[in-house]
């Protein structure tokens, strides 16, 4: 069968992109391969690990389980959009200060999950942080420093 490419317009970190994609393309591959935004990582590709977490129209999602076509006309925030020029996002600063990244592979998704959490709940309890990052696996830190970093960032704002 023939399946025509689909023309989509997606706003990523405030910038509008018009691209042609095959229907099978995931939002994750669209971000990484078509737009070259490789901050968002591919982990399990099954929606279990959260390495590919991005914010789609204000909601945290796993980009590996979404067709790029589904994002047509929508707005995506990725880790590349967190810092304001040279000015790091508060979470990026507290992650660095707390040593919340070791190998760093989970960090982009983790940052987006934490940003999404603080957007919804600016002063979460420790338990709420744990709950908010339950879909993001980190095999290095044991989560302690990540939770600490989120609590610090919440205190700052």
């Amino acid at each position: 069968m023939t399946a025509e490419p689909i023309r989509i317009t997606v706003t990523v970190n405030g910038e509008s992109f018009r691209e042609e994609v095959p229907a099978t393309r995931s939002l994750l591959d669209f971000l990484r391969d078509d737009l070259g935004l490789t901050g968002t990582k591919e982990g399990c590709s099954e929606g279990e690990c959260g390495a590919c977490a991005v914010i789609l129209d204000g909601r945290l999602v796993d980009a590996c389980l979404i067709f790029a076509a589904e994002a047509d006309g929508r707005s995506v925030e990725t880790v590349e959009g967190l810092a304001d020029g040279e000015e790091l996002h508060p979470l990026q600063r507290t992650f660095a200060a707390a040593g919340a990244a070791q190998c760093g592979y989970c960090t982009p998704g983790m940052l987006m999950a934490c940003k999404s959490l603080l957007d919804r709940n600016p002063s979460p309890t420790r338990e709420e942080v744990t709950h908010g990052i339950a879909g993001n696996l980190c095999r290095c830190t044991g989560y302690g420093t990540i939770i600490q970093a989120v609590m610090e960032a919440a205190k700052e704002s």
Binding site: G47, A53, L60, V61, L65, A113, S116, A134, G135, N136
Partner: peptide, 9 residues
């Protein structure tokens, strides 16, 4: 149900 990512979809 699942994580916040899953519950959003």
């Amino acid at each position: 149900v699942g994580s916040i990512q899953t519950r959003n979809r």
